[in-house]
């Protein structure tokens, strides 16, 4: 089966998803990941998305989607009601960072969080030369980016520790390949598997 234009994190995320489980994709966009994971695994899925056009795109794909702003939390979802909650390359677009992270591990027995790593060496060089980075993982200019929070791998791990997120596993990618050495310098995309430290 040909799966064109799969985002690099899809297959890494998919490895952590069990069959016959329930999965909630927060900020699911046009439903590309949900469509992908449903081809890979037998999972009961829902997406959450704010954009009208993306909700429509999901409906066109026959996906269950809930139109909602993630900034206002996840009141529609009960504690530990999903086997897996996914926040794929969406964290950096949310203002209420702490709220959403706490909400994710409240709702999900496990959660997967991926984000572009601002700490990649090419971004550091851009900053040193005096310009905001524009790259494959951060493809926007400063004036039109949907990203409202820029963070590095080290930043995320510090916050996770502070707010009671237990990191179960981590994969760091660059150009779709795993980065095992100096991840914060050589990785452009970080993917974490987490759960609440209290549970």
């Amino acid at each position: 089966m040909k799966l064109p234009a799969i985002r690099a994190d899809f297959s890494a995320i998919s490895d952590w998803v069990s069959s016959h489980s329930s999965l909630l994709d927060l900020g699911c966009g046009d439903g590309d990941f949900l469509e992908y994971i449903r081809q890979q695994k037998n999972v009961k899925t829902y997406g959450v998305e704010i954009s009208d056009l993306s909700v429509l795109a999901c409906v066109k794909k026959g996906l269950d989607v809930i139109q909602q702003d993630l900034e206002s939390g996840l009141a529609l979802f009960e504690d530990q009601s999903f086997d897996m909650v996914v926040l794929s390359q969406t964290l950096q677009t949310i203002h209420e960072t702490e709220t959403i992270l706490r909400e994710i591990v409240r709702v999900g027995k496990e959660s997967i969080i991926s984000f572009p790593n601002f700490g990649h060496w090419s971004h550091r060089i851009d900053i040193l030369t005096g310009r905001m980075p524009v790259s494959k993982s951060l493809p926007f200019d400063w004036y039109n980016t949907p990203n409202v929070r820029v963070l590095t791998i080290a930043d995320f791990e510090a916050l996770a520790n502070n707010i009671g997120l237990h990191i179960i596993d981590r994969v760091v990618l660059h150009d779709g390949k795993k980065v095992t050495f100096a991840a914060n310098l050589f990785g452009s995309l970080a993917i974490y598997r987490v759960k609440s430290a209290e549970l």
């Binding site: 329930s22 009208d52 909700v55 999901c58 409906v59 269950d64 809930i66 139109q67 529609l76």
Partner: peptide, 21 residues
């Protein structure tokens, strides 16, 4: 409407919800 959606989600029933501005 969200009350209905939540009750359906609690049961893992298939539901799509749109809030039209």
């Amino acid at each position: 409407s969200r009350e209905i959606v939540k009750a359906l989600l609690d049961n893992k029933s298939s539901v799509t919800y749109a809030e039209i501005d």
